[in-house]
C-alpha cells in the first residue's frame, strides 16, 4: 500500500504528514478486510479467513519502528501486519485467490502469507507455534552479530499454550532480541480471556521470567507507535526480550463461520466507540489537520488501490497441477 501523501495541502510539519500516513494505512487495511469479506461471499476467497477490523492500530503502529532487516513472525490474522510491513496488496489478494502470483504462490492462502524481502515469516496457524521460531530467528541474528530484532505477534489465546512460557523463558535466559507482541482482543475464538486464564493481567505472567513488559491501548495508533518505539529501543540495545500487550478488540467474527454467540452486540458496539480509525480522524480534525474532503480523498485512493489488487488477483494464473509436489523439498542444493 502506498503512503497517504496526497493531501499535503493544509498540512504542516512532518508529524502531520506521518499522522496521515498512519491514518491511510489503517483505512487501507480496513477497506482491504471489508473487500476480502465481500470476495469471500462471492466465493473468490475460500478456506479460513480471519479479519483484522478493529485491530488496525496495532499492526500499523507496530511496524513503524522496525527496519527492513528486522524479522516478523505473525499469526493467521495477519493481512494487516503484512500490509503494514509493505507486502503488496496485489500479492496478498492473489494469494487469497490461490493464484501463483500470490506472495506464497497460492500454497498458503490467507493464513500463510510469506515474504522474503521484508523478512515476513508467516502467516502461522498453529496457535503459539510462531513464538519458538521467533526465538530462533533472534538467536541466529544474535549469533551472527546482527543488530536485527524479531517481532513476534500472537493473540491472547496463545498465552495459554506451553510454547508461550517456554519461549519467554528461553528468550530471557539467552537474552535474545525478541519483541513479544500480544494482540489481546479479549477472545480466543469464543473463549473470553477470563474463561481461559486464572490471571488475566498478562504482564504478570512474564514478570516471573524477568521479561520487561508493558500494556498499551491498542486502539490508539500513536500510543502503540510510542510504546513499540520504546520496546524496540530496549531490545535493540541488547537488554533482552520485551513483552508488549496491545489491548484491542476484534469487530468482526473470529472467522467467516462464527455466529458470535459468546458476546453481546452491545459489547461490540461499546468497543466500536473506540474505533482506532474514527477516533484518530476525530483527533486530527480537532487539531485542524484534516477535513472531510481529505478523508474522502484517502478513502478513494484506498479503494482504487484495492481495486487494482483485485484486478491483479483476478488476472493471476493457476499453478499447473503438474507442479503439485514442488516445494516439498528444495529444488536447489546449497551449502
Amino acid at each position: 500500500m502506498s503512503e497517504g501523501k496526497i493531501i499535503q495541502k493544509g498540512v504542516h510539519g512532518v508529524d502531520c504528514e506521518h499522522a496521515l500516513c498512519l491514518l491511510y494505512q489503517m483505512m487501507f487495511i480496513r477497506r482491504f478486510e471489508d473487500k476480502s469479506a465481500e470476495l469471500y461471499s462471492a466465493m473468490k476467497i475460500r478456506g479460513f479467513l480471519h479479519l483484522y477490523n478493529g485491530e488496525e492500530a496495532v499492526a500499523v503502529g507496530a511496524m513503524q519502528a522496525l527496519t527492513p532487516e528486522d524479522a516478523i513472525v505473525a499469526t493467521y490474522r495477519e493481512h494487516g501486519q503484512a500490509l503494514a510491513r509493505g507486502i503488496s496488496a496485489g500479492a496478498i489478494m492473489a494469494e487469497m485467490y490461490g493464484k501463483q502470483e500470490g506472495c506464497s504462490r497460492g500454497r498458503g492462502g490467507s493464513m500463510h502469507l510469506f515474504d522474503a524481502k521484508t523478512r515476513f515469516y508467516g502467516g502461522n496457524a498453529i496457535v503459539g507455534c510462531g513464538l519458538p521460531v521467533a526465538v530462533g530467528l533472534a538467536l541466529a541474528d544474535k549469533m551472527q552479530g546482527k543488530k536485527s530484532v524479531t517481532c513476534c505477534l500472537f493473540g491472547d489465546g496463545a498465552v495459554a499454550e506451553g510454547e508461550f512460557h517456554e519461549s519467554l523463558n528461553l528468550a530471557a535466559l539467552w537474552n535474545l532480541p525478541v519483541l513479544f507482541f500480544c494482540e489481546n482482543n479479549l477472545y480466543a475464538m469464543g473463549t473470553a480471556l477470563k474463561y481461559s486464564q486464572s490471571v488475566t493481567d498478562l504482564s504478570k505472567k512474564v514478570e516471573s521470567y524477568d521479561v520487561a513488559s508493558s500494556s498499551v491501548d491498542g486502539m490508539d495508533v500513536l500510543a502503540v507507535e510510542a510504546a513499540v518505539k520504546k520496546a524496540v529501543e530496549f531490545v535493540r540495545s541488547g537488554k533482552g526480550p520485551y513483552f508488549l500487550e496491545f489491548r484491542t478488540y476484534r469487530f468482526r467474527a473470529h472467522s467467516m463461520f462464527d455466529p458470535q454467540l459468546y458476546r453481546t452486540k452491545e459489547e461490540v458496539e461499546e468497543w466500536k466507540k473506540r474505533d482506532p480509525i474514527d477516533t484518530f480522524i476525530h483527533r486530527l480534525k480537532d487539531q485542524g489537520l484534516i477535513n472531510d474532503t481529505d478523508i474522502k480523498e484517502l478513502e478513494e485512493k484506498a479503494e482504487a488501490e484495492i481495486n487494482e489488487a483485485v484486478v491483479f488477483a483476478e488476472a493471476g494464473t493457476w499453478e499447473p497441477v503438474e507442479d503439485l509436489t514442488r516445494f516439498v523439498y528444495s529444488e536447489r542444493r546449497e551449502v
Partner: peptide, 18 residues
C-alpha cells in the same frame, strides 16, 4: 531448558535466520 517444542522451534528459526 526442558522445552522440546521451543528449542526445536528455535532450531527452525535459527536455520531460517542463516
Amino acid at each position: 531448558p526442558l522445552s522440546e517444542s521451543t528449542f526445536v522451534g528455535a532450531g527452525i528459526g535459527a536455520a531460517l535466520g542463516g
